[in-house]
Design a protein around this nucleic acid. Structure first.
Lengths: 191, 191
DNA sequence: GTCTATAGTTGGATAGAC
DNA sequence: GTCTATCCAACTATAGAC
């Protein structure tokens, strides 16, 4: 891995662990085993490097989610697979955590990938749910957009509760809880 | 309001807006219109001041939540009142946001009030739900603890989605969505 | 209690040599 | 491309005067 690549990857890690304000160019350089000259040769500065890092993380997040969304199976099966997927729960969401970073939210360029990615997740979940409703897999009264927001919020909120408790338990409970509520919206099969 | 009081209040605001890493003693002093000498006379340093601020915010958060939890009405009514209560959605949760602050989570003293407050919210919600289930207001198959985690996660996650979108819409949708799912667990009244 | 002075460290970046 | 030298501001805190 070349120096530019290492700088981006180190920035991705540090943004996840410490956020934008908490990540210094010096810390990035140390982790990437790159000098100052190298960093400022490849990138104009901290924000430029952060942009590259955030974009890559956002792309990766969408790709991983699409694996479950585009899989075969009923809507409930796909939503369950998405919620139950292996996750670094105690580390939280590398995109969601950036919403707490005022310097990220204040910069339209840095903010855009965060906004777009979470909006995409909601929209994609809504599509999956709408599809399930059309196929009669889900109750006709279920609102796809609202329920999609609920599911996306469960994940982001589950991370927060898990980090506070320093335990994955509340995350797992929140997921199990919403899946239980959703199951009640699955029409009984015609006998 | 005296100087000590102003320092605590300013710290509360800044922790909410910029987090622990992003809040400097200088910034606190400016907002509180207090000098350095004043601040270091009343508090041993940044973390000591942050502790006072976090404790107060945690107490306030519990008191506000208890208003809805202890109100008269069915479990669904109290949960609905809690979720629909007026909130500074785009500012997020002043306690939940601290879970993203590695320096807060690394210090047991600062971490404790965050952990305890969110655990309390879940436990209290579980009590309300269990009560509703016993009274026959909610489906017997509903797990109070899991559902409590779901509801608490909706709030924390709703804030994240709202901040990303710079709009309260996803927060409101997530809340409406989960209330819709919960309503499906309300047994039809005996006719 | 509050003020000013001081101080060592880190942050974020630039300049120019190689 | 990478290195070292240099820069100024901000961060966090201490010391001592008033």
């Amino acid at each position: 891995m070349n120096s530019e690549e290492r700088l981006i990857e180190s920035t991705r890690e540090l943004l996840w662990e410490r956020g934008y304000i908490g990540t210094s160019p010096t810390a990035i350089q140390h982790r990437a085993k790159a000098g100052q000259g190298s960093m400022y040769h490849h990138f104009t500065g901290k924000s430029d490097l952060a942009l590259a890092a955030i974009r890559r993380t956002a792309d990766e997040m969408r790709a991983k989610a699409e694996e479950q969304f585009a899989a075969p199976g009923t809507a409930m099966e796909r939503v369950t697979a998405y919620l139950r997927r292996e996750r670094d729960v105690l580390k939280g969401c590398p995109i969601g955590r950036l919403t707490q970073d005022p310097d990220v939210m204040a910069d339209p360029a840095l903010r855009a990938p965060v906004d777009e990615t979470l909006a995409w997740v909601r929209a994609r979940l809504a599509e999956v749910l709408a599809e399930g409703r059309e196929r009669g897999e889900l109750d006709a009264g279920l609102d796809p957009q609202e329920t999609a927001a609920t599911i996306a919020a469960i994940l982001q909120g589950g991370y927060v509760l898990a980090r506070a408790a320093d335990s994955v338990e509340p995350f797992d409970q929140a997921v199990t809880g919403v899946l239980g509520l959703l199951t009640a919206c699955v029409p009984a099969p015609r006998t």
